[in-house]
Amino acid sequence: MMTTPPNPARVATIRQEDPAQPEVVALLRNGEADSAALYPAESNHHMILEGLRASNVRFLVARDAEGRAVATGALVEHGDWAEIKRIWVEEHARGRGLSRQMLDALLAEADRAGMAILRLETGIVSHTALALYERTGFVRRGPFADYTDDPLSVFMERRLRAA
């Protein structure tokens, strides 16, 4: 009898957690450092830790089979639409589909919350992220909410249901 080996690309869990845990704060800082290496400060739009703990935010953490935090993502609710923030996968865990798994988890959260539209901002040199968003139905649009035109930013949205 042949058995299917476990898929090492799958994380053990993705669930809502407090972003203030030291291990998770380290992931957030790693993401900020990566962005700082790619873009000037005025083009980085990271949500601060206190904001990630707000009542309108669903902050998700992906953990590997050993329980280590390896990825983050947040859904920030704004009425009938939500913004995706802070998707980050640790470098050693990349190339295994974790960004897609986190995005799928955030899409499921948005669906459960009844969101009509998802929006996001990412940088122009974040090619892997842009390709993922385009593959999953996001389309480019202009700035939204408090964002302004920035030649280093790409703004996108995906309709989940009729508004």
Rank of each mutant, 00 (worst) to 15 (best):
M1A: 15
M2H: 09
A9W: 00
A9V: 03
R10H: 09
R10Y: 01
V11C: 15
A12Q: 13
I14A: 08
E17D: 13
E17I: 03
D18Y: 01
P19M: 12
P19T: 10
P19H: 06
A20G: 14
A20F: 06
Q21Y: 05
V25G: 06
V25N: 05
L27V: 01
A36Y: 03
A36P: 04
Y39N: 06
E42G: 10
S43D: 07
H45E: 07
H46S: 13
L49H: 07
R53S: 14
S55H: 07
N56K: 14
V57I: 10
V57T: 09
V57L: 04
F59L: 09
V61R: 00
A62E: 06
R63E: 14
R68P: 03
A71M: 08
V76Q: 04
H78E: 10
H78I: 00
G79N: 08
I84S: 03
K85E: 03
R86M: 08
I87N: 02
I87G: 03
I87W: 03
E90A: 15
H92M: 09
R96V: 00
L98G: 03
M102Q: 05
D104C: 06
A105G: 04
L106R: 01
L106D: 02
E109K: 02
D111S: 13
M115F: 00
M115Q: 14
A116Q: 07
I117G: 00
T122A: 09
G123Y: 02
I124R: 15
I124Q: 13
V125A: 14
V125T: 14
T128A: 15
A129K: 07
A131M: 08
Y133L: 09
E134R: 10
E134A: 11
G137P: 07
P143H: 07
P143C: 05
A145I: 08
D146V: 15
D149A: 12
D149F: 06
R159P: 07
L160F: 05
A162D: 15
A163H: 09
